[in-house]
């Protein structure tokens, strides 16, 4: 199987094949015998590779895999490499509306903006509470509030759209 792996803004192709002793990973810098064994639950693994043995936490978040080694965490983009290039590259940005999303699941305490209001970048557009802490959700860019999709007292899921801003 061939994967396209993106890490630190660089992309590389890696081929993985099963072997009697684990997996053989063929990367641009050579072949390596790799073993990945489950340690605890769905996220903790022991990785043996090139004479190193480390415990690693692998957690899926959206399309990324978050790889935690010790104190550090790295986001890795990984996908099956396909013969045809994806059409969904370089989407146009422009002045598309920006959806401001809840950073975590919680309770909307306040929406201190009104539809049609002009907000500065960094201004609070909602206040969400979780685990007894209240956090202001800032506007990622200056613009006009086009739509408010939540009201105070409403429970929201992580990533749910709170307000829409047109820059």
């Amino acid at each position: 199987m061939i994967f396209e792996i993106e890490i630190g803004g660089r992309s590389q192709r890696v081929e993985v094949e099963p072997s009697s002793d684990g997996l053989v990973v063929r990367a641009p810098d050579g072949d390596l015998l790799v073993r990945l064994r489950p340690l605890a639950g769905s996220e903790w693994w022991r990785l043996d590779a090139g004479g190193r043995s480390v415990s690693v936490r692998l957690r899926e978040r959206g399309a990324e895999l978050l790889v935690t080694l010790g104190a550090a965490r790295t986001a890795v983009g990984i996908r099956r490499a396909l013969p045809v290039r994806s059409r969904r590259t370089g989407a146009a940005g422009g002045d598309l509306p920006i959806e401001v999303r809840a950073p975590m699941p919680g309770l909307v305490v306040d929406v201190p903006v009104a539809a049609g209001a002009v907000v500065a970048q960094g201004a609070a557009v909602a206040i969400v509470e979780a685990m007894k802490m209240q956090m202001e959700v800032p506007a990622p860019a200056a613009g006009r509030v086009e739509e408010i999709r939540v009201r105070p007292g409403q429970e929201v899921a992580g990533g749910q759209v709170l307000v829409v801003i047109r820059p």
Partner: peptide, 10 residues
């Protein structure tokens, strides 16, 4: 290590 872990996991 992250690349290897991700590839093996995938």
């Amino acid at each position: 290590l992250a690349v290897l872990a991700a590839a093996a996991w995938m």
